[in-house]
Design a protein around this nucleic acid. Sequence first.
DNA 1: TGACACTACCTCGCAGTGCGGAGTAGCTTC
DNA 2: GAAGCTACTCCGCACTGCGAGGTAGTGTCA
Lengths: 110, 110
Amino acid sequence: MDTTQLLKGVLDLAVLAVLKDEDGYGYDILRRLRTAGLDEVGDASVYGTLRRLFQAGLLTTYVVPSEEGPHRKYYGLNAAGRDQLNRAGKTWRTFASTMDALLDERGVAA
Amino acid sequence: MDTTQLLKGVLDLAVLAVLKDEDGYGYDILRRLRTAGLDEVGDASVYGTLRRLFQAGLLTTYVVPSEEGPHRKYYGLNAAGRDQLNRAGKTWRTFASTMDALLDERGVAA
DNA sequence: TGACACTACCTCGCAGTGCGGAGTAGCTTC
DNA sequence: GAAGCTACTCCGCACTGCGAGGTAGTGTCA
């Protein structure tokens, strides 16, 4: 089964979450996600998500030139982003509970 | 907030799950899913999923004519379906745990 | 009889989104 | 100077859930 399909709609939430406590740039965010257990996330997905979230007005962004490599485009949550993070988090929790209950009732993959 | 995106890749699992203990026909499956809490599932999604799962060789199907209405096309799990149900269930549990941990660590939507 | 609602099924085409592939560019190491 | 890593970007595809629409049969209520 494809983990990629499971990511749909959740990647937004995951990206918002890893940005909650600390700003980050694309590549760094990718690493955080993979460290957290989302091994199969592609880099293009992360960059695409960041662009979407930014266009939705949930992120602030600023470029930090680096002498040791290419420039880094940092992203951080703004108020709307934090709001969205909480809402999406609750939606996820509810949805996950629903699915778990559905599986539990039928003794699936205990 | 889109529950629809969260369904991606999970609807298969949900449909397999509600068919585990008892065969069912499209409309009935739709009702079971909604009863289980997946209120926003569209009928077309279910019929499409059933077709996909059948084509993937996970379901058996048989038509039961009904004197009290249109005919009913029943679906049931075969061995491959049960297998897939277990695998997908495990994948889901793992994925959900990963996400929960990610959110918990940052105190999101406690 | 007509209007409506419900069950039951199906098809078509769209929309969102993650990903693969490719490309650019700078740095470090061998 | 070839590799290999970091860092970012763009294009187009694939998958899948959904809305809109259609077909039929049954039952209800006036």
